[in-house]
Design a protein around this nucleic acid. Structure first.
Lengths: 235, 235
DNA sequence: TAGTGGTCTAGACCACGGT
DNA sequence: CCGTGGTCTAGACCACTAG
């Protein structure tokens, strides 16, 4: 897969950011320096930087330079701010089920393809807490050849999406979601410590990724009484 | 406010699309034609078209041309698909309160600025139905000098955002949202015809617009039992 | 004033789609 | 084959930031 020059520069910079060689707040080399370093013209450099801006990796300041930005997987709902920022406080995660290989046996809001159904699945379930308050129960599934690599593995910074991005170079490219207010069932209410039958926010997500046939399915059950789900978006 | 050349071309094309001179599916003049028509180089034309692609107005096809796309105000939550597409069926809207001038007297999830608080507000409230089923109660506020123009007016195609875009050239540029699953109160439940105390999805939104000091505040109460709120996003 | 990013020109060659 | 969009070069001048 031959990359164009701007794509080469783009992925080179992206890697440096993801591997921590360029940290949040650091300034990139100036556009003219990049021209010289990579022997390309400014138009090409700017095309690469424009893409990084659109993907939320850097921000530009006229007259100053381009700086690495706090990066969000800025798609979908919860992940817009990430769970921790969405609730804005100290967050703990408890694995109810560490990543395991499994068969498909679930009823989800979104339906996997035939190809996915016949494949092996990876599954894990987490309870997300603010301090000691459990606020979200989260189940995740995906079907892939490479699931073995995930079984029993830890996540980079405790983040599944960071792991995908850094270890497997898979980026989230889109999502479909469905939102429902429901009565909490017994199992859910016991985990997130509300009364059975209390209103609960149920979010079903199908994430699309840069790997064409890889989708990630999540079912979230949120106690929004104390901590509403926050979300922001800008063009 | 002086526009750059690519901004001129961009807004010229955007207007043609919004005013129906260029319809969905129509091909734009080729990049080379645009170069000649507006006496600019291809780099500049492409910058304008790139922006239109990013804003979702057009899509490009290598070897064929650039075509006007089905446009969504692709921000926020409900408006991602628009109410009608989000539920995917025949939709009716009942005005419980037509647009009127009012004073600020509400408790919202997001707090207006001092400037907004001292200004006059426009308010309207709608009940959104799928067929005869009421599924969403929607209240909207905003503070602006030009609210008089809205008082008692009809909306373009029944859409407030289309009206903003076509009549006032104001685009939605971002949003902040909060989601809560709540017990339905008496007034809400009577309108959307569910039992008082049933779970209901409460969405609070603060829309940001291309007019720097103009924000639009919405409070939505959704019956998600029969029709979950749908949402999709792609990069 | 020096250095940065923002806009723009006038070309060139390539890759894709349809005739 | 031609016309389309995709990539790229080698410049130029402007607007902003900071010392």
């Amino acid at each position: 897969m031959k990359q164009t020059r701007y794509q080469e520069l783009e992925s080179m910079l992206k890697e440096k950011i993801q591997h921590g060689l360029l940290k949040v707040g650091d300034y990139l080399p100036s556009e003219n320096e990049l021209c010289i370093q990579y022997s390309i013209t400014r138009t090409t450099v700017r095309k690469a930087l424009d893409n990084l801006v659109n993907e939320g990796y850097i921000e530009k300041q006229h007259g100053k330079g381009s700086r690495v930005k706090e990066h969000r997987n800025s798609l979908g709902l919860l992940n817009v701010k990430g769970f921790s920022e969405a609730v804005g406080m100290n967050v703990n995660t408890i694995f109810l089920q560490k990543p395991i290989k499994t068969k498909w046996n679930q009823q989800l809001a979104f339906h996997p393809s035939e190809m996915e159904l016949q494949s092996n699945w990876l599954y894990f379930e987490r309870l997300r807490c603010v301090g000691d308050d459990p606020v979200m129960l989260e189940s995740n599934w995906f079907a892939d050849q490479e699931i073995k690599k995930f079984v029993g593995q830890e996540f980079v910074d405790g983040s599944f999406f960071k792991t995908l991005s850094q270890k497997y170079l898979v980026e989230i490219t889109g999502s479909e979601q469905e939102l429902r207010a429901e009565y909490a069932d017994e199992r859910t209410s016991s985990y997130i410590k509300i009364e059975t039958g209390a209103p609960i926010l149920h979010i079903s997500i199908k994430f699309h990724t840069s790997k064409p046939d890889l989708f990630i399915y999540s079912e979230l059950y949120c106690n929004t009484m104390k901590y509403p789900i926050g979300n922001s978006y800008h063009l």
